[in-house]
Simulated scan of single mutants.
Amino acid sequence: MTCEVTLRVMQVHQTPTLLLTRPRPASERFARGLTGVEIVIAPLMEIVGTGARVELNGVDGLILTSEAAVGFLPPSTLPAYCVGPRTATAARAAGLQAEVAGLTADELVENLTARPPHDRLLHVHGTQTRGDVAARLANAGLSVAEVAAYDQRRLPPSEVFSEALTRPHLIVPLFSPRSASIFAEAAPSLRADTRLVALSDAVADALPPEMRRQTRVASMPTGKDMRIALELLGVELVSP
């Protein structure tokens, strides 16, 4: 009598890992409401003040291209022209009359040039900037000064970061060209199943070609669209 034995191989589902490399407060905020992944926070930069004084005497309005600038402003109720809804939300919470003037620095420059406020503006930004916002607006005839109020200081890769790179089904969201270039230097090689998610084409373009091939770009450069892009990779979105 012959017994036929059928072996059935069960495929074990591997929980993805979401690696967040932004400064810790921003990473912790972004992680809220995400499930279906193991979240690892391993910052590759931190926000520190430069010591430069933000003087608002004689200023009629502010230009804010990052929410990081909000924490370095003195109390004010000035109008603020912001890049992105997250920056505008943070500015309103600080008491400013904030509006979204564009989703990117280029859009902000285009919109303020097309409808210039008759104000003396101050662009508060970090030491690492893109887009030459103040110079381009000044060339268009606007009255714009600028101050570098903070620095995005690099942090060395931690053991937590290095260990996360070895995990299968790793997902890494990248929010700025600077964070993308820092990540690429900190991660000389990636597993073939690692997936990067870039906030915009400019962020993706800061990656080397081999990493670019493993990258998905969010449909719009907003935190909401970044979360939607992550959903497509298996991250469950519980709250907006």
Score class of each variant (00 low, 15 high):
V124T: 02
M226F: 07
V70Y: 05
A192K: 12
L20G: 02
R120T: 14
G71H: 12
H123C: 00
R191K: 12
R8C: 04
A42I: 01
R24N: 10
M1R: 10
R153I: 10
H169G: 06
L103C: 05
L199M: 15
P156C: 09
A164W: 14
S66V: 13
A148P: 00
L34F: 08
I47H: 00
L112Q: 01
D205W: 10
L207K: 07
D201C: 06
L112C: 05
A94M: 08
M211H: 09
L19F: 10
A206Y: 08
L19M: 14
T87W: 02
P117L: 14
A192S: 14
A88V: 09
R167D: 03
D60K: 12
A145V: 04
G36Q: 08
A149H: 03
D201H: 13
A145F: 08
N111V: 07
G131I: 13
M226D: 03
P79E: 10
V100K: 05
A98T: 07
T50D: 01
P188M: 14
V5Y: 05
L174C: 06
Q14N: 06
P43H: 04
D193L: 13
G102K: 09
A80R: 02
N111K: 13
G141D: 07
S76G: 10
V9K: 09
G84T: 05
A148F: 07
